[in-house]
Design a protein around this nucleic acid. Structure first.
Lengths: 223, 223
DNA sequence: GCGCTGGTAGACAGACCGGTCTGTTAGCAT
DNA sequence: ATGCTAACAGACCGGTCTGTCTACCAGCGC
């Protein structure tokens, strides 16, 4: 079961937590670690480390001590910003929600002005996500696997999936689909399946098939 | 995060671990618990409890102490049968594999002699699974969410998904599909998506849509 | 100067984790 | 009777978990 996780350098996402946001990066080059005494970004560092670690290893597998070490923050600071680990978990899920929803919207927009094309364009976001190093499936589905139906984490997952489906349905209505509900459901099923397959199937053609199938379903429903 | 799990009675799967297999159930009715002194089924009790608990709560959330308590077994007995928790986890996954593969095969068989109908029949197994109380999605996808790419648990998941897809492809070949690979991939994507949606989407129509879409894809590919 | 805010370091508590160990008992074959 | 096997009960170990607490420090507005 291997309950512990090495404190650093084993993550597939690569680069050192992206901590150069504010500019003027403590230019005096003598110190070893140059921990940013720049105030008020402690919360951001915590959430950034938690996002990376929770996604890569699972929420339960990552302890607060590791997050604290990775974000270079004092324990009291951690608990000032997030009164409990659960609060951090839901902040993490909110961030995943915003990120994935944003990528989906961007991919739809990039696919052109036609709603029918935008419905297919969603699968470009999928392809991009699956290709990124350290891809480990849908963060929400993974979170649901680690939480119980009554909990806040689980309900965020349900709400997220529902919001995506509702947005896809609106797009399907715009595209003039004969049965927008059915088309939206089929597309989101395909999307969720590919989201899992992208992490489990070594063959990357699965996402191509997902996209092609989506194209086919959309063309057929929108005449 | 609520790390602990109540020792009994909170599981959605219902009934008291099905421990009346061997007949002659210690008919002397004086004792309270009637733990089966019937020899050699200790391993089965452990694996049964683990299967129920791992699926319901996640592998990481369930400690060996709880499994030991639920299966009414001594700790030494537990570790005699399963040298480590990891061994139990893979035994659990093997059991889930056998169960789900069996249900899929049975549903295909029940759908009739035509391979094309059998491909659609898979989705009957899905519908049945999603309707059962305590359904929590695909045990393998959930397991993958709790394990790392290199580990045995993760590789069992990959192997399981690969085996299912390969079997579906054989069925698609038998059915005379124009592109059996593509059809099999599309169907398994749909299946995996619906497996997740069945646990997350309160609306049960998603599985109907999955089945209808499968019917459509099969009809089209097999002319 | 003074207090407030937001940060640092780290000891500590109490529960739980996987796993080992000692010792006991029942059934059964020799 | 003896010895083997498989089960039992449960104390114990080192380590990890979340969360609390004390103590100190830097900047800033008053």
């Amino acid at each position: 079961m291997s309950r512990t996780i090495a404190p650093d350098g084993e993550l597939p996402t690569g680069g050192s937590s992206s901590r150069s946001a504010g500019g003027t990066a403590t230019a005096s080059g003598d110190a070893r670690q140059e921990r940013p005494t720049r105030p008020s970004d402690a919360r951001e560092r915590i959430l950034g480390a938690a996002t990376r670690l929770f996604y890569a290893h699972g929420m339960r597998a990552v302890g607060v001590d590791l997050i604290i070490a990775e974000s270079q923050v004092a324990k009291a600071t951690f608990y000032r910003h997030f009164p409990s680990k659960d609060d951090l978990v839901i902040a993490y899920l909110d961030r995943v929600d915003a990120a994935w929803t944003g990528q989906l919207h961007a991919a739809a927009k990039a696919a052109g002005p036609e709603p029918a094309d935008q419905l297919v364009g969603l699968f470009d976001a999928l392809a991009t996500a699956c290709r990124t190093e350290g891809y480990r499936g849908c963060g929400f589905i993974n979170a649901a696997a680690e939480s119980q139906p009554g909990t806040a984490a689980h309900e965020r997952t349900v709400a997220h999936k529902s919001a995506i489906r509702s947005w896809v349905r609106d797009l399907a209505v715009e595209a003039g689909a004969t049965d927008a509900d059915k088309l939206a459901t089929a597309l989101t099923l395909l999307l969720d399946g590919a989201l899992s397959a992208g992490a489990l199937d070594p063959d990357p053609r699965a996402v191509d098939v997902a996209r092609a199938t989506a194209r086919h379903l959309v063309d057929e429903a929108c005449g």
